[in-house]
């Protein structure tokens, strides 16, 4: 009966994952391997294709500040910053999706509300980075719900510090993807990350640890059944959580640097809330 409960939990979290996350790994891998027929993504590989591709990205027009009015500067400046703003909008939307997923974890909404906030604040960027992995390969990443493929080289060619933002995520993702998790494994792993009892400022750690332990058991069983030949997969996956924390710390420091150096950059209020006093 205990194993049956753990399987039911895995099914429940997989269903919630499918409900709240529009682009699954299965769909992303199909797009990346060209198995979607005529439905191929638009490729952004330079500034020209970025401008052409903007119609696919839900870009909000942002005003160009006075001191960038000179025509050619204005054009490049606006494109780069507009792209960054659209990334922020998508990230904020993704935070909302992750929040809904978190609420579907059995017992999560019964936790102290302040602890729910803390778990999301510290967990959500880690979750978003894990969710980015299936969209990436060594050459680039899908964006805009799989409608666009943006090359890694193009991202590396952006001006500093924009060019430094994605490279660590590519390095992590290429390694993470070798574990070959599927969407049902991912759902459990994301729940484990969210239910981390060691986040700073938690008021009542015990119920969080109890919830996480159950999900961990469910994940361990899931991996044994779903990947019988992959030795130590559970242990390898748990080790990834340490790498993730470093990536998030570096990411937040980069955003803080951007805030200082890019005088015209405005950070989305939700992302600002999450990153304020994070690390």
């Amino acid at each position: 009966p205990e194993a049956a409960d753990l399987r039911a939990l895995a099914r429940h979290l997989y269903e919630a994952y499918l409900k709240y996350f529009p682009l699954t790994k299965a769909k992303a891998r199909a797009i990346l391997s060209g198995k979607t027929g005529d439905n191929v993504p638009f490729v952004i590989h330079d500034m020209k294709s970025l401008m052409e591709g903007e119609q696919f990205i839900n870009c909000k027009q942002i005003p160009v500040p006075e001191h960038h009015q000179q025509q050619h500067i204005k054009l490049l400046y606006a494109v780069e910053l507009r792209f960054f703003q659209s990334c922020q909008s998508r990230s904020a939307e993704a935070v909302r999706e992750v929040t809904e997923f978190a609420k579907s974890i059995p017992g999560f909404v019964d936790l102290d509300l302040n602890d729910q906030v803390t778990l999301l604040k510290y967990g959500v960027i880690e979750v978003l980075i894990i969710m980015m992995s299936p969209l990436m390969n060594k050459d680039g990443t899908l964006i805009s719900y799989g409608q666009i493929f943006m090359t890694r080289e193009f991202l590396k060619s952006l001006r500093k510090p924009f060019c430094q933002m994605m490279e660590p995520k590519f390095e992590f993702s290429v390694k993470f993807n070798t574990l070959e998790l599927d969407d049902s494994d991912m759902a459990l792993f994301l729940a484990v990350i969210i239910l981390s009892g060691d986040r700073p400022g938690l008021l009542n750690v015990k119920p969080i640890e109890q919830l996480q332990e159950t999900v961990l058991h469910s994940l361990e069983l899931q991996l044994k059944l779903n990947h019988p030949d992959s030795l130590q997969l559970f242990a390898k996956l748990l080790q990834k959580m340490t790498d993730l924390r470093q990536i998030v710390t570096d990411h937040v420091h980069l955003i803080q640097l951007l805030k200082k150096t890019e005088i015209d950059m405005c950070l989305h209020p939700l992302l600002q809330e999450i990153m304020k006093d994070l690390y």
């Binding site: 904020a92 939307e93 909302r96 809904e100 729910q116 906030v117 999301l120 939700l270 809330e273 999450i274």
Partner: peptide
């Protein structure tokens, strides 16, 4: 609570979307 107003709203409202 004020520091994390939007997160609180997201957690408490299941249907009404916060203006993202």
């Amino acid at each position: 609570k004020e520091k994390h107003k939007i997160l609180h709203q997201l957690l408490q409202n299941s249907t009404s979307p916060v203006d993202l």
